[in-house]
Simulated assay, not measured.
Amino acid sequence: MNRAAHDPVPVSDAAPHPVPDVVAYLSGRWTVDRTLLDLATGAQGTFHGTAEFRAAGDGARVLHVEQGELTWNGSVNRAGRTLGLLPRPDGTAEVTFADGRPFHDLDLRTGRWTARHPCARDLYDGTFTVVSPDEWHLRWYATGPAKDQLHRSVYRRQAEGA
Rank of each mutant, 00 (worst) to 15 (best):
G59W: 02
L138P: 00
L36P: 00
L85C: 08
G111N: 04
D105I: 04
D134I: 05
A43N: 04
G68T: 15
S27D: 02
G42L: 03
E160H: 13
R121I: 11
R152M: 15
S153D: 03
A56R: 09
A40Y: 00
P102Y: 10
A40D: 11
V23E: 01
W113F: 13
G57A: 15
D58C: 01
Y25I: 07
G42Y: 01
G42M: 02
L123T: 15
R88V: 11
S12C: 06
L123G: 03
P8Q: 06
T46K: 06
G28S: 15
R121Q: 12
A14M: 03
E52Q: 08
E66K: 03
P16A: 11
D90I: 08
H104Q: 02
A15P: 10
R156Y: 00
R101C: 05
G59T: 15
H6V: 09
A146N: 12
H104A: 06
V32C: 04
A60G: 12
A115C: 05
V22M: 02
G74F: 04
P89E: 15
A5T: 09
V131Y: 04
D125Y: 08
D105A: 11
W30A: 11
S153E: 05
L70M: 10
T110Y: 00
M1C: 10
R61T: 15
A55W: 00
E135S: 05
H17F: 06
A56S: 08
Q158M: 10
D90N: 12
H137T: 02
A4Y: 13
E160R: 04
E66H: 02
R61W: 05
A14R: 11
H48C: 08
D13Q: 14
H104K: 07
D148A: 07
T96D: 03
A146L: 14
G74L: 11
P133K: 15
H64Q: 06
R29E: 12
R116M: 12
V131N: 04
G28Q: 02
L63W: 06
L86Q: 12
L150T: 07
P18L: 07
S75F: 15
